[in-house]
């Protein structure tokens, strides 16, 4: 087992957390972290894991057709500039678009649904682990 970083010391400032949706949680804990099978043989217990596979296959025909549809519906006339003008403009200057368009990724949709599920648990007491040498609240 290794930690893939150079060694160093450091203080212990408490961090602050920002909310994350369940899709983010899935990205992190289902295929990252230490794999117990690598350390334990005898006392490993088989337990069924239901994983919600909301990961998008980024390059798929469905994705392609959604992009094409979005481009097709793109109302360039409502943009501040027409296409010929756009040709000479910097990318940063174009189109203040809605962040959510007609193309709604599968992941995003699933993530939102799961986000709702998560929110219903957000009020539960937050578990905390602390160092013994620290004073608890």
């Amino acid at each position: 087992m290794t930690v893939a970083v150079p060694p160093a010391g450091g203080g212990g400032l408490p961090g602050r957390s920002s909310g994350s949706g369940l899709a983010d949680v899935i990205d992190t804990i289902l295929d990252k972290g230490l794999v117990i099978d690598a350390y334990v043989r005898v006392s490993l217990v088989g337990i069924e894991i239901l994983t919600i596979d909301v990961r998008v296959v980024v390059a798929s025909v469905d994705t392609y057709l959604r992009f094409a549809e979005a481009v097709n519906r793109l109302d360039l006339a409502s943009q501040k500039q027409g296409l010929p003008d756009l040709l000479s403009s910097a990318p940063q200057s174009v189109a203040r678009g809605k962040t959510k368009g007609m193309v709604q990724g599968v992941l995003e949709a699933a993530g939102e649904k799961l986000q709702d599920m998560r929110e219903s648990y957000a009020d539960e007491p937050v578990p905390r682990a602390r160092r013994r040498r620290r004073e608890d609240d």
Partner: peptide, 23 residues
Amino acid sequence: EQLLDEAAAEVPVLPLRFGAVMT
């Protein structure tokens, strides 16, 4: 994730992948 992340905000933690069960 919440348990590990709350812990990680205070102390060093080596997280295990979801689903690690021993006897």
